[in-house]
Amino acid sequence: MRIFDPHIHMTSRTTDDYEALYGAGVRALVEPSFWLGQPRTGVSSFRDYFDGLVGWERFRAERFGIRHHCAIALNPKEANDPRLTEVLDILPRYLAKDGVVAVGEVGFDSRTAEEEKAFRHQLELAKEFGLPVLVHTPHRDKAEGTRRTLQLVAESGIPAERVLVDHLNEATVAMVHESGCTLGFSIYPDTKMSPERMVRVLSEWGPERMVVNSAADWGRSDPLATLRTGEAMLAAGFTGRDVERVLWDNPVEFYGRSGRLLLDEVSGADRTATYSGNSVLRGERANGGAA
């Protein structure tokens, strides 16, 4: 099974996870920027985080044979923090970089005026930089938040096929399907969707425009949720071709609209290589320097 995880927060994961992902067939992924589980206190924290997403994390993933891309944005929750408004001003410098394949995660958390302002601003940036958009839908009042999301997307004039609306469930799938946007489903151990529920959604709506992600982060989550969904699809009678479509073709088609996806095999996956002089190995390097 060849897998592209369209939403996974590898910064919060270990090298064991990278090895397991590779073993499961994951060859490429997108890491959207989001919050840290606790609030950041200033713009420079975001800069360091973005620098890591386009730098060290990308390098780290390649050591394990996985192509890493990212989405850059001011996330919905922190869009409410007045200390962080200026993050919007530094986004253009990042949206121009290689490895950045989308604006995201944007969207709503509590549907405040500040969230909506940041959301609209970032939809404009996506247009300016020709990038797809990854939209987070809220945990609370999800259906209403999703409805408002689709309104803003329509008002922005961005073609629906350039927008992925994520964290969907049975209650929100119909309206997003009708909008023409790409439909994202996060498969979680406890909340959001399970592989079995996902299979039922796929049976009802078909595999077109459907993408599945693990959204694995620092919370209880399973980086192999994509593989588990593929297995559940096969067990339910879907063909290997259907699985490939949902787990690889659809996310590749979506993020490919950025023109910046790198999908060639990582050659050698040399773990002794260095990033800014530092390697993923501890202690001595092959050439004798300190890692």
Partner: peptide, 10 residues
Amino acid sequence: IAVLFPAAAR
């Protein structure tokens, strides 16, 4: 230049 410089290789 803020956006042309990073994109220049591409």
